[in-house]
């Protein structure tokens, strides 16, 4: 960490010590600020959550009332459901390939677009456009036109004499075409990075320029530390979103998770179990296993955060 930033941190920790003495209990005020959230939690969120937890121990079919079957759903999942295993595998690959790629790409573009170039607003908008399309039905058609057997990419490749497979419909590559789609829609992460970059006070850079720090030095010692809370947020949220990824695989594979279940994301399988196959109990059990998985992951990232996330509020 650069000396300027260290100096700032030192100043902060001094004020922090001062503050600790003056800390008073803020239960009342906090309750007011949290009131809407608490009402939402109690009235809208907890009930359905508890219901789904209960369903996970039943054979709930949606259409008729449920029957308690103990841990049967969980046992089946881990012993007698090859598609469950397949969907876990697909999802893990998706998460661990797409999230790092997307975040690195988003960060790189955000840095590029943060300053120092004309027509920034236009570029920013252009890069955000794919994200604007969201999960539109048009995307499915579009992706096939681009990456399909005789899509645009393969026609370009054919000009150079390369005969390429159908990237969307070949089970070897289909998952990666969805990874690409998710990376292509990096706009949301980019926006969050961009707004994070707004938080870097220019004085930090000014001071380091005086110090003679290079661009890379500035990036490593100033930008990254100040941006770290936002990076932390993006890592956690993108991972959660990727674990729950549904729409892209759904629209690209026409809801089937095919070919040969190569794009059968966990959430897609869960949805099919619940709504298409009328096994909502089983789907709920799957959902809670997913919560457990994501929870473990989130805990790990939270645990690691004290080593690399720097809060301006002094880490409190």
């Amino acid at each position: 960490m650069s000396t300027e930033l260290l100096a700032v941190k030192r100043r902060q920790s001094k004020t922090q010590r001062r503050r600790l003495g003056a800390r008073y209990n803020q239960n009342g005020v906090a309750l007011l600020f949290l009131a809407p959230w608490l009402i939402g939690l109690v009235c809208l969120t907890l009930g359905p959550m508890a219901a789904s937890l209960y369903y996970s121990f039943t054979d709930y079919s949606i259409l008729e009332s449920s029957r308690w079957i103990g841990a049967d759903n969980f046992v089946t999942m881990f012993t007698a459901d090859p598609l469950f295993t397949q969907s876990l595998k697909v999802t893990f690959i998706f998460v661990f390939v797409s999230v790092p790629l997307k975040l690195m790409f988003a960060l790189a573009v955000a840095l590029l677009l943060n300053k120092g170039i004309r027509g920034l607003g236009i570029y920013r908008t252009v890069y955000y456009i794919p994200t604007l399309l969201g999960g539109s039905v048009a995307i499915a058609m579009l992706w096939r036109k681009m990456l399909g057997g005789d899509g645009l990419l393969n026609q370009l490749l054919a000009m150079t004499g390369i005969h390429a497979p159908d990237w969307v419909s070949n089970p070897k590559y289909s998952l990666y075409s969805i990874v690409l789609l998710s990376v292509w829609q990096f706009g949301s992460s980019m926006i969050i990075f961009l707004s994070g970059l707004k938080q870097v006070p220019p004085e930090y850079y000014d001071a380091s320029s005086v110090d003679g720090a290079g661009k890379i030095g500035q990036f490593l010692h100033i930008t990254l530390p100040v941006l770290s809370p936002v990076i932390f947020f993006n890592v956690i949220m993108q991972t959660i979103t990727a674990f729950q990824s549904f729409t892209q695989a759904f629209i690209i594979s026409n809801g089937s998770g095919g070919p040969v279940n190569s794009t059968l994301m966990y959430s897609l399988y869960l949805y099919k179990k619940g709504f298409s196959f009328f096994q909502m109990g089983y789907a709920s059990a799957m959902a809670w296993i997913l919560v457990l998985l994501i929870g473990i992951f989130t805990l790990l990232v939270f645990g690691s955060s004290k080593y690399w996330v720097h809060y301006e509020d002094g880490g409190k």
Binding site: T45, F275, M280, A287, W288, L290
Partner: peptide, 9 residues
């Protein structure tokens, strides 16, 4: 609340 898939609630 963010982690639980929407479909089951």
């Amino acid at each position: 609340t963010i982690m639980l898939p929407l479909h089951v609630t």
